[in-house]
Design a protein around this nucleic acid. Structure first.
Lengths: 346, 346
DNA sequence: CTGTTAGCGCCTTCAT
DNA sequence: ATGAAGGCGCTAACAG
C-alpha cells in the first residue's frame, strides 16, 4: 500500500546524506548530538523503520537463530525453548522454531531452511542425525550449540550442553535400592535417543553394582517406548504382564511415567504400595498427578538459557571458559515410591 | 571461514552470465533445459546456496511469518503453534516464535521485532493489547490473523479465527444442569483474556436461563485466576471456602481444573461425588489425570493450521470464502462429573 | 563531523 | 535463449 520509507527519504527530509542518517540510527560516535536528535526526530515522525534485511545483506549477520527440537508439544522441549527464547530476546535475537518429530530427514530439511535464512547460529536439541550427516551439516552452520549430544571436539564453532542423564538414572535406582527394591524395570524411551541410552546406562550400571559383580539386570526388564503418555501406558502394560515380579519402574520421562501409572492402576496394582514409579524431568504437572510423581528434576529452562548464552558467546568470539556444560538432575521425592513389598530388606 | 559462494561464482564457473544462473535456479521458463541442468549441476557441485536475504531484499518478501503467544509452555498454545508450524512448513515458510507472558508491552515489542525482520505476516494469539494500540500495529503489518480476538472488519488484510468459547461454556453448564447441579462456580481465568470473558458470558447466560428470568448466578460464584495449575489450585481453595455450597466448578482451562482437583481433594471433598469439575481444552494429560477430567475439547492444532492457511490465502490474495472462522468445542465426558449431591432433581 | 563511492547477492527490466 | 544495466536499502571505507 504505502511505500516503504527508506533511509534516503529521511535523508532528504532532513537535508543530509543518507550516510548521516545511517550514523544517527546506529548511534555511531562520529556525529553531532544535535543533528543526531534532529534526524531521529524526523525519522520517527516519518515512521521510518530500518530494513533489517538490507542491513543483514551488508553485515552478513541476521540477529536470528534457529532452534530445532523434536516436538514443541512435549513439555520438556517447550520449557527448553522458553529458556532459549527468553535469553534470545535479552540479546535482541529472534528465534525460528522447527519441529522434526525425531525424523532425521526432517532435521536435515530444518537445518537447510535455517541455512537458507542465514541464521547466525542454531541450537540443536536431541538430534537424531547420524554422526557423519550431523558433522556435514554442522560445517555449513556458522555456530551451533547441541543439547544432549556431544560435539566433535575438533569443531571450534560448536558447543555441547547435556543433562547428566546417567547420574540421574543412578540417583533414581539408588533411591529404589535403599527402599529395598531389587527387581526394577526401565521404560526406556526411544531407541535412538541419546538421553535414553544414557539413562539406560546409568540404570544398568547402578543396578549391576548393587547386584554384585557380573550380575547385570536381565534385559527383559527394559522396554523401549515412545516418549509420551500413550507410549508409557502401552509399554507398562506389556512389561508388567511379561515381568509381573517387578516392584519398581524407572521411566524415561514424566509423560511415560504418567502413562505407566495409568496402566498399573488399571491392572489393579496400587501405587506405591505394590509398585513404585519414578519419572524423569519434573514437568509442571508431575506434582498435580495422583499420586504426585517422584521424579528427577532436570533444569530445562536453565539449559535453554545456557544454550543461548553459549551461542552468543560463540558468535561474539568470547571464551567459553567456566561455563557449565553438564547439568545434573535432582531427585524430587513425592508419592509414587515406597518400600518394596514382601521383600527381604538387606 | 570459507567465503560465501554466490551466483556470480556459479556463472563464472559455467561460463554464462549471472542472470542465466538466476533463471536456472528459479526455474523460470526462458532458458534451455540443457544449460539449466548444466548450471544446476555446477551449482550443486560448488555447494551454492542462494541467499534468501538478498532475494528478500529485491522481492520484498521473506517467506517468514511470526507467531506471538502468551507462553509456549502452556499446552494450549504449544498445540496451536504446532499446527501453525506444520502448515507453515508445508508452504515453505519459517516461523518466528515470540512469548509475551500476556504483557501488552511485550506484545508490542514482539510485533516491533517481527516488523523489523520484515515478516510477511503474523499470527497473533490471544492478544492483550488495547484495541487502539492493536489497530495501530496491525496497520504496519502486511497481513495478520488473529486468534481469539475479533478483527476490525475494515481491515482487509486481517482475518480472525476464534474458538467458540461461549458455546463451550454453555455446553458445560448444560451438562451440569442436567445432572442436577444448580450451584455452579466458575474459576474464570485472566480478567483481561477475551476467551475468559466469552466463557464467562456463556456460563452466565446458560445459568441464568436455567434459574429463570432475572435471576443471574451470584457474582461470588465467579473467581478470576491465573490460567495455570497454581492459579487453579489457589482460586479453588479460596472459592470453596467462601462458597462451600457449590456442587460443581467450571474451570477456565484444564490446567486450572487440575489445580482445582488438587485443592478440592486436599479439602477433603471427593470428586465427583461431592464436587463435579469440568475443564476446558482437553490437553493430552486431561485423560491421564485422576480422576480423568471431563472437559471441552478445543481443536487447537486445527485452528493453528487454519490460521496459517488463512494467512497464506491472505498473502496470496486468495479469497477467504467458505473458510470456517469459529471453532466449536466438544464436550468430552470422563470422570470428574456426576449427579449433584443431596439436591432436588427437578 | 559529514558526504561520496562502492557493493552486499540477487532479480527485474530491457536489449540482443 | 542469453546478457547488460540498474536497483532493492543499507553500511564500510574513504574522503573532505
Amino acid at each position: 500500500l504505502n511505500k516503504r520509507i527508506t533511509i534516503a527519504d529521511v535523508a532528504q527530509a532532513a537535508g543530509v546524506s543518507s550516510q548521516t542518517v545511517s550514523r544517527a540510527i546506529n548511534d555511531k560516535g562520529e556525529i553531532s548530538p544535535e543533528t543526531r536528535e534532529r534526524i531521529l526526530g524526523i525519522a520517527r515522525q516519518l515512521g521510518f523503520r530500518p530494513s533489517n534485511i538490507a542491513r543483514s545483506l551488508v553485515r552478513q549477520l541476521t540477529t536470528t537463530i534457529g532452534i530445532v527440537i523434536p516436538d514443541i508439544t512435549n513439555p520438556f522441549f517447550s520449557e527448553i525453548v522458553r529458556g532459549v527464547e527468553d535469553a534470545a530476546r535479552a540479546h535482541a535475537y529472534n528465534v525460528f522454531l522447527c519441529n522434526t518429530d525425531e525424523a532425521p530427514e526432517r532435521e536435515l530439511s530444518a537445518l537447510d531452511s535455517l541455512l537458507d535464512k542465514q541464521v547466525d547460529g542454531v541450537i540443536l536439541c536431541s538430534p537424531r542425525l547420524e554422526e557423519d550427516e550431523l558433522l556435514a551439516r554442522l560445517e555449513e552452520i556458522p555456530y551451533a550449540v547441541l543439547i544432549n549430544r556431544p560435539a566433535a571436539e575438533t569443531l571450534a564453532h560448536v558447543r555441547s550442553l547435556s543433562f547428566d542423564d546417567r547420574a540421574g538414572a543412578c540417583l533414581a535406582v539408588g533411591h529404589l535400592l535403599e527402599r529395598g527394591h531389587r527387581r526394577i524395570g526401565f521404560l526406556a524411551g526411544p531407541r535412538r535417543s541419546r538421553s535414553a541410552l544414557q539413562r539406560l546406562a546409568g540404570y544398568r550400571d547402578c543396578l549391576a553394582s548393587a547386584r554384585g559383580r557380573g550380575t547385570p539386570a536381565p534385559g527383559e526388564w527394559v522396554l523401549h517406548c515412545e516418549p509420551d503418555l500413550a507410549g508409557g501406558e502401552r509399554a507398562c502394560r506389556e512389561l508388567l504382564s511379561a515381568q509381573p515380579e517387578l516392584t519398581a519402574l524407572l521411566c524415561y520421562n514424566d509423560l511415560v511415567a504418567i502413562g505407566a501409572i495409568h496402566a498399573a492402576l488399571d491392572s489393579g496394582r496400587r501405587i506405591p504400595e505394590d509398585l513404585s514409579i519414578i519419572g524423569f524431568d519434573d514437568i509442571p504437572l508431575a506434582s498435580y498427578v495422583r499420586p504426585p510423581l517422584t521424579t528427577l528434576r532436570t533444569p530445562k529452562r536453565e539449559v535453554g538459557a545456557a544454550a543461548m548464552q553459549a551461542l552468543v558467546d560463540l558468535m561474539e568470539g568470547q571464551t567459553q571458559a567456566g561455563l557449565p556444560s553438564n547439568f545434573p538432575p535432582e531427585l524430587i521425592l513425592r508419592s509414587t515410591t515406597a518400600a518394596a513389598p514382601e521383600e527381604m530388606h538387606l
